[in-house]
Design a protein around this nucleic acid. Structure first.
Lengths: 194, 194
DNA sequence: GTCTATATCGAGATAGAC
DNA sequence: GTCTATCTCGATATAGAC
């Protein structure tokens, strides 16, 4: 198997993914990616058939990365409640990037929704992986009703925080909201007295 | 005063604003706007000096529109609690557009954050108008602490709902979340028993 | 004021040498 | 596999006729 070519392909995907996140997909050119990776523009077309093709590869790689991360969490934390807290804590761990560029999943979906519905469907799968995992954790806790809705609600809360943090360039807001959301998680989901 | 030119200018701003919302700013060309308004491409530069200039005009017009809307609400609803509910209800009233294109303010800020910080600052003023109005309503209710944070929290919740509704193309989610958010508004802000 | 014609640039994509 | 050179297209923007 072409190890050298395969390695380059991975480097392109990594660089493109980062640039798509920081600058947006449409706003990132082959030039940008080429100079980041250190190759020529023409060389792309040996590994990818179009720019869309690179985006698809980026999305696939991200999905694999998300699945790997969640599997790691499953090992690291035995308590599903702890895992849910860890999900919210992503905001805190990535607060600098979120302040500058927003959420990598959310901002990409927002961009794609403006002009390409077929790729949006693919990008949305990143959310679906998170959602299904959240549903699984809720069921493990013993929540039996509305697990899907609660998972979607959590994603929505996290996305709102990321979006507003980015738009207002306000890291403090993120920190306060994370605290509040984790409190809500404890009060309404993990220790329901009603 | 050049009435004919001024009227055309307003038509351009209206058409551009709609297209920027539906297709994104970068993804909308002069061609698109020209054919929507029914003028030639060259004619733009008599009324605007650049594409950025059109965007600034769109933002200014939107800000004026938001202020007018809020002033209308102030007249229509005497109860500040009712006004806060009405703010959340924007989601419901615009559910079709939000499902297709997201929030006009939020998605624009998300796009601009990727490549132009100076215009983002301007676009963000749309949020600030809402935020300041929300703070005013909270104070009228008698809330004295954390009015700024609560206002930001409300914006964040609304943005999260709009973003996820758009990304999942899920109008039902929007409807459920609006219900839940209005319930939260009643329980935690309007009738605090604690 | 509005138009047509054009300049200039950078994008994605291709051809073919090495 | 990777490169250089080039094609084609559509974008913003400008010049100048009407």
């Amino acid at each position: 198997m072409g190890n050298k070519g395969e390695a380059l392909r991975q480097r392109v995907i990594a660089a493109a993914g980062e640039l798509f996140y920081q600058q947006g997909y449409e706003n990132t050119s082959f030039r940008d990616i080429a100079s980041a990776v250190g190759i020529s523009r023409g060389n792309f077309y040996y590994h990818f058939k179009s720019k869309d093709d690179i985006l698809h590869a980026v999305i696939d790689t991200r999905i694999a990365g998300i699945k790997a991360t969640l599997a790691e969490w499953d090992k690291k934390f035995t308590d599903p409640g702890q895992r849910l807290h860890h999900y919210v804590d992503i905001l805190l761990h990535n607060q600098d990037n979120i302040t500058s560029y927003g959420c990598p999943v959310g901002s990409l979906c927002t961009e794609l929704a403006k002009y390409d519905h077929s790729i949006l469907t693919d990008a949305n799968k990143m959310f679906v992986v998170f959602r299904d995992w959240l549903v699984a954790q809720l069921k493990l806790i013993g929540v039996n009703n509305n697990t899907h809705r609660i998972a979607m609600h959590l994603i929505s809360r996290v996305q709102g925080i990321a979006m507003v943090t980015n738009a207002f360039d306000d890291k403090l807001f993120l920190q306060q909201e994370v605290k509040q959301l984790k409190q809500w998680l404890d009060d309404e989901i993990l220790k329901p007295s009603h």
